[in-house]
Nucleic acid binder design. Structure first.
Lengths: 210, 210
DNA sequence: TCCGGCCTTAAACAGGCGTTTGAGATTCAA
DNA sequence: TTGAATCTCAAACGCCTGTTTAAGGCCGGA
């Protein structure tokens, strides 16, 4: 695959990622995408089939990019000290804060899907469960091996959302009244703070010792 | 004020709240709003000035409705046992889960604003800081009176987001793979679980005893 | 050189958007 | 009852949307 059209395809996917991240799927227009890719709107229908199919391509690439950064496998969760496993999990989830330019668009894509899921994403995740949920669930069981299924589900959802708000609303945190500076040292401090909080929360009230 | 036009005004605000909650400000159309209110699209321009002005009215009503449900004042936070204050704070924030029909639209309105803030809301909150942030910050200081400003800011933001995901993504929690049932008993259990988690997290690692 | 497939393009299509217009209905005070 | 103010409504305006169409450029093989 080194046809002349590959340049157009790749440019369209890149431009679409930026536009959909900024405005969401509905509000992102094929004309703006084409303009940023220096291509014609009709090229989207020609190469992908339509706006939805282009979006599917964008989501697939986003999933690949995010999961490639995982610093934790299912095997490691059971092998490692549970606090160390938790530390790696949090570090992975906070990576978008470090590699801001690279990941911010992907984070925003998922934020849009969070408030208004598209049929495109629903179809994609229906195929197989999200790896991040499986990892978080396994991590919770290291702390609460005897928890009921409902409590386990709640704790898993809770753990996933310990980092989400910081990543999703990073732009909000640098403004008033918070005024935080998002450099590497800050992300390290945040990671340490969250590790203490989450470890403390899971260990207290119902947790078993490691 | 019991002019004949008041019926139209009220019907438009009600319909607009539903439509904006479902689709967001941009995607919510004046034609759909007018149709649900059994009115003419031109009535929006006539009574409010335009789509933005109608939205401002919707947001104002939403703020009033949400803050009227507060179960905690600044004075009570310092007077009460800190765990009891935290319990009341969490109960307040989880109320949308209990009174689902009444509050779900407001929660969704703010969820849209979270991913893509409108100039309308920005102008509204610029006037004065959000009461919920002030309360959460005061609560955090009960646990960590000697924390640095940055840590205080992070902990405040963290506390606010302990309940947010459960309320915002309640529709997600009832589906696979979680399959939770959102009745009163469940919300009580969730409130108790979160109270233990948050109290444990804030008390561990840096917290002082009460 | 010429042909045929791949690619790009401007133009047009049907439909939705927020808002304005002007005429008609309705309401209320005098 | 009359006149003026208030309100409603269908129609039209200009602009934007995703997609289709048809014409032409481009390029490698015969």
């Amino acid at each position: 695959m080194s046809r002349p059209a590959d340049r157009t395809r790749q440019a369209l996917v890149t431009a679409a990622t930026a536009v959909f991240a900024e405005k969401g799927f509905e509000a992102g227009s094929v004309r703006e995408i084409a303009q940023r890719a220096k291509a014609n709107p009709a090229a989207i229908s020609y190469h992908f089939g339509g706006k939805e199919d282009l979006y599917r391509e964008v989501l697939r690439a986003a999933f690949r990019a995010f999961e490639a950064q995982a610093q934790l496998t299912e095997a490691e969760i059971d092998a490692l000290n549970r606090r160390e496993a938790l530390r790696r999990y949090l570090a992975w989830q906070l990576q978008p804060l470090v590699k801001r330019d690279q990941f911010s668009r992907i984070v925003r894509l998922f934020a849009w899907e969070n408030v208004s899921p598209t049929p495109v994403l629903r179809a994609l995740v229906a195929a197989e469960p999200l790896p991040v949920l499986a990892l978080a669930g396994q991590l919770v069981r290291r702390y609460r091996p005897r928890a009921e299924p409902e409590e386990l589900a709640l704790l898993t959802f809770w753990l996933v959302n310990q980092t989400g708000p910081f990543v999703r609303d990073a732009a909000f945190l640098v403004e008033e009244p918070f005024r935080l500076t998002l450099d590497q040292a800050f992300v390290d401090r945040l990671g340490g703070l969250l590790l203490d909080l989450v470890d403390g929360a899971l260990a207290a009230g119902g947790g078993v010792s490691d």
